[in-house]
């Protein structure tokens, strides 16, 4: 209840909202803390870039999931399938166009990558649309059934990948220009990781631009906060939701492409394997928050890389620990999304 003194009438200045910088500072703080532990600067740089690259890829894969959840309270446990399918879509391009992949021309290599990205995104976007209609819509608003049925969708889709692509792992080396590493000082940085960081930043920037500068973006942000009011203003939130679901699936597909060249080996279960990290990321970031998802991805990946080097046996346990610590600090995640 607002009990304002009369003097602070309607035009009194509201308390300025403080930008919440603390979570952002966590990333450099974590990196700085790791430096003395790792010991050598080149080793630290390699690990940090590796962590950032992995974080960017996780962000690309996770961002759609967190938005879909924020907007409609739908958590797609089958999201990992889109990652796998995005990764397998790579074979549609890379195998027939092997000459371009191996060509000693950066232009050709980039063209192949772009082609992979477009094909994967179109494929997973279309599939996302079908998945939303067939799997998610009938159980709308029923959480238990939603979890079960999206899980079921994942099982079936994973099996279908087996049917279509065979059971053996497929190897997909990245295009020639992105193999090997460059030396920065004494640190060897893999080229592909630099590419991953660049793509991740581009996707994040594009998302921020859409969310902050377009009417659709405003609607999505408003819908995450209060979907009912968006409807009362005359917008069909269902359509918006389908759009975001398709876009999120396409992003997962793009993430799958990046992940495929990173791992260089394709298995149908690869999407589900990253899902654990993705869940940790969106819980840590605050369910529904894109910025939180971005920071969460970086934190999780950096922690995984540093501990992978310092104490490899507890690497995944360290992420659970990270999640617990952050939830103890902020029970709703780094950037809790205001809800009604």
């Amino acid at each position: 209840m607002t009990t304002m003194p009369a003097a602070r009438s309607a035009t009194a200045a509201p308390p300025a909202i403080k930008r919440d910088w603390l979570p952002i500072l966590l990333v450099p703080a974590l990196a700085a803390a790791a430096l003395p532990l790792v010991g050598s600067f080149p080793g630290w740089l390699t690990l940090t870039v590796a962590g950032l690259a992995m974080g960017m890829m996780i962000f690309i894969m996770a961002s759609g999931l967190t938005l879909v959840f924020g907007l409609m309270d739908v958590l797609n446990f089958g999201h990992g399938v889109f990652i796998s399918i995005g990764a397998f879509a790579v074979t549609l391009i890379v195998l027939p166009l092997a000459t371009l992949v191996q060509a000693d021309s950066v232009l050709m290599n980039v063209a192949v990558l772009l082609l992979c990205a477009v094909v994967a995104m179109v494929l997973t976007g279309a599939l996302g649309w079908a998945f939303e209609r067939a799997i998610v819509r009938p159980v709308y608003g029923q959480h238990l059934k939603q979890i079960l049925v999206t899980m079921g969708g994942m099982i079936v889709a994973e099996q279908l990948i087996h049917v279509l692509w065979g059971a053996d792992p497929i190897s997909v080396p990245p295009p020639e220009a992105f193999r090997g590493s460059v030396l920065i000082g004494e640190a060897a940085i893999e080229r592909y990781r630099i590419l991953a960081v660049a793509v991740g930043l581009a996707v994040f920037a594009a998302m921020l631009l859409v969310l902050n500068r377009t009417k659709i973006g405003l609607l999505i942000r408003a819908g995450v906060e209060n979907g009912e009011m968006v409807e009362a203003l005359g917008y069909r939130i269902r359509r918006l939701f389908v759009g975001v679901f398709v876009a999120g699936s396409a992003l997962a597909g793009l993430g799958g492409v990046m992940w495929a060249f990173y791992r260089q080996t394709l298995t149908p279960g690869m999407g589900m394997e990253v899902m654990v990290l993705i869940f940790i990321v969106i819980i840590v970031g605050g369910l529904g928050s894109v910025g939180g998802c971005f920071l969460g991805s970086l934190l999780v990946a950096l922690v995984a890389n540093y501990t992978g080097f310092l104490a490899p046996k507890v690497a995944l346990g360290s992420n659970i620990l990270l999640m617990v610590l952050i939830l103890m600090w902020r029970p709703q995640g780094l950037y809790p999304v205001a809800k009604r």
Binding site: F69, L75, F77, L144, L287, P312, K313, V314, L316
Partner: peptide
């Protein structure tokens, strides 16, 4: 907290446990 939250957390904990078991 909510059903979904519990599902995600148990998934994360269980997978960490599985990895721990195979690492030790």
């Amino acid at each position: 907290v909510r059903t979904i939250f519990f599902a995600m957390i148990t998934l994360a904990v269980a997978s960490a446990f599985a990895i721990l078991a195979s690492q030790l």
